[in-house]
């Protein structure tokens, strides 16, 4: 187990290095750079700016300087937020994205497992049909539509009630988090519902359930201990990447609900060619995703004793 974890960690580091390298060269190959601005500057000022940010050096030299700094955990200073370090930006804003993401995934996982189990039990009957229709909606409608509709819904709800039940946006209290987290988790919830449903139905045909029934175990116990527990496995498998995806993919929700998360910085950095923030956020998100996959692989071993790592 220890050797397995070590090997996965080394693989993870190589993956992150690859992400950093690919991003670095892709970014420098795009025309335009962070020093371009609306008002043109003279060649002298341009040269001063390049010197200030080290962009006057050859690209390979910049790359090695960059790698050396990254190895020490220093991502440099943002080009657009000129007085802020990329590390500060990540530290301040990721925890907000993370809090939102965790709540969203909690909604998604609980909802997905419960709705999935329900549809499996009521297979081909009304609850199944209604929920599966909603699931198709949830999977196919893009997040920004949910975000817009969710916010409009809150506005109308508050207007109808005459007081603020949920804030329209902003950040700071739990009530600020609920609607955005629901909206953010909706797609994943739909996906998990479908996964849970097919998993439940597959297990319903398993031999060990028939054996359990033949042994005369109480139906409640068979359901909870044997069918449900085994059906959850595939859900747990996708949960890790889902956490990373939700935490990093909340850009639209953060924008609409005016939430100061990291997703916004990630996308704006690309639009603004903010080299240091692009590198910092991409490498950070890459590392986070790799880490979550490793964590899930390890957890998987605990949930299912049959899966022996290595």
């Amino acid at each position: 187990m220890g050797r397995y974890i070590l090997r996965r960690l080394v693989q993870g580091v190589i993956t992150v290095w690859f992400i950093a390298t690919a991003t670095f060269f892709a970014m420098h190959n795009v025309p335009g750079d962070p020093l371009q601005s609306d008002k043109a500057v003279s060649a002298e000022i341009r040269a001063n700016l390049e010197a200030r940010y080290g962009l006057d050096k050859p690209l390979m030299e910049q790359y090695f300087i960059y790698l050396a700094n990254m190895a020490q955990g220093d991502f440099g200073i943002s080009f657009t937020q000129q007085n802020r370090e990329v590390n500060d930006i990540i530290a301040e804003h990721f925890r907000i994205s993370a809090a939102l993401g965790i709540l969203a995934i909690a909604f998604a996982a609980l909802g997905g497992i419960l709705w999935g189990a329900l549809t499996a039990l009521y297979r081909n009957r009304l609850p199944d049909i209604v929920i599966m229709l909603l699931v198709i909606l949830g999977i196919s409608v893009p997040g920004f539509v949910f975000a817009g509709l969710g916010q409009l819904g809150v506005v109308n709800l508050n207007a109808a009630l005459g007081f603020t039940l949920f804030p329209v946006g902003g950040w700071g209290t739990v009530s600020h988090m609920i609607v955005p987290a629901l909206v953010l988790g909706l797609g994943t919830m739909a996906f998990l519902t479908r996964l849970m449903r097919s998993s439940m139905l597959e297990i319903a045909n398993a031999d060990f359930l028939r054996t359990a029934r033949a042994k005369g175990l109480p139906a409640n116990r068979i359901f909870r201990k044997h069918q449900l527990r085994n059906a959850i496995l595939p859900v747990v498998t996708v949960l890790g990447p889902s956490i990373a995806a939700i935490t990093t993919g909340g850009f639209v929700v953060e924008l609409v609900f005016a939430i100061p998360g990291l997703g916004r910085y990630f996308v704006q950095a690309v639009q603004q060619s903010d080299y240091t923030v692009i590198m910092g956020t991409t490498v950070f998100y890459g590392a986070f995703l790799v880490f979550m996959v490793i964590v899930v692989d390890i957890i998987y071993g605990f949930v299912d004793p049959r899966v022996r790592l290595e």
């Binding site: 817009g148 916010q151 409009l152 809150v154 506005v155 508050n158 207007a159 603020t164 329209v168 946006g169 902003g170 924008l255 609409v256 609900f257 005016a258 100061p260």
Partner: peptide, 16 residues
């Protein structure tokens, strides 16, 4: 109190 570049979100804040 809010930072967003989304014009519709901004309008929703105003409506509320």
């Amino acid at each position: 109190a809010y930072i967003t570049s989304d014009a519709n979100a901004s309008l929703n804040f105003y409506k509320d």
